[in-house]
Design a binder for these strands. Structure first.
Lengths: 161, 161
DNA sequence: TCAGCTCGGTTGCTTCATGCAACTCACTTG
DNA sequence: CAAGTGAGTTGCATGAAGCAACCGAGCTGA
């Protein structure tokens, strides 16, 4: 048999996270939820995803504790999908993906597909990934990795090139 | 036929980015490159990925302009895979994934699999996703979306719940 | 009252991608 | 000259994706 390899047991938070959301449809559903979409039909209308796959992904997201099902009416019983606290924390991941696409895929001279506005400061904005300690932007050359369980991750400095 | 749906044509930078790296193995290869790994055999040893799939993913990353192949010896000709500028800019995405896993998957009380150290400030650190304009952490409730091409993306405020 | 519509799925079918093991090719080393 | 190494390629079996059709509970309106 050939089940998709589980990444949950690797000693790496990136791998463990990807075990839950390492799938394009899953992330696009999350994007939709961040855009305010909640219902099966809204996702189905918004994304060119097969309905059976959508069912699978929504169930997996609920099982992962990223979305939760909330009834919005009885008779007929209907649910919508909302973010849990953990799901809300994925916002940064989605924004980081959007930022990369804006920089590296959107053709030069063209506007990005959408613009984000930060209501707190009022500016058009985009995500930046910074050091939680000093607030500087994190670059590969400046970050070292210290493994906490020995063997699996090399203690080498990150890429200088 | 049933080819995997292309996301490249959707009017969304998240979708377009996922069209290139919306696959768990792809992202784990990038993680490896950020950790300093460069060669086919290093990836193959580090990840439980099938070798044919590894070949596919590396070729796709090169085609996407995220990695480039550099010969490190002739006779026999051997290449290594290095980051392009675009690839280097994916560092933030990987760090954001690691951060989420550290917060939401690593069992409470246990240390994260790896700790990142920011050489610039000298502190143990983790990624934070902030507003490029004001430096505040970006939360779903504070961000509005303005579509630049009409129809496809709703102008609604992002999730309040 | 009954045909038709909506929502949120499920079922069947076909094709594609994945996982695995085995094999190849061009060298290098002992 | 036998064995090893790096970087793949090939073949096969199975699971997942895409698509279309179907379903059941309730509402709608003529």
């Amino acid at each position: 048999m050939t089940t998709r390899t589980s990444l949950a047991d690797l000693p790496c938070s990136v791998a463990r996270t990807l075990d839950l959301i390492g799938d394009a449809w899953t992330v696009l559903i999350l994007r939709d939820v961040f855009y305010g979409r909640r219902r099966f039909s809204e996702f189905a209308d918004s994304l060119p995803i097969a309905r059976n796959v959508l069912t699978h992904r929504l169930n997996a997201l609920v099982a992962a504790g990223i979305l939760r099902k909330v009834a919005y009416q009885e008779r007929p019983l209907r649910h919508e999908y909302r973010l849990t606290d953990a799901g809300r924390d994925l916002f940064g991941v989605v924004l980081a993906l959007a930022r990369w696409g804006d920089q590296h895929i959107t053709p030069a001279g063209q506007p990005a597909p959408v613009t984000f506005v930060h209501a707190v400061c009022g500016h058009d904005t985009h995500a930046e990934v910074v050091c939680a300690a000093c607030g500087e932007r994190l670059e590969p050359r400046d970050v070292r990795v210290r493994p906490n369980f020995g063997q699996d991750v090399p203690a080498v400095a990150l890429a200088q090139d």
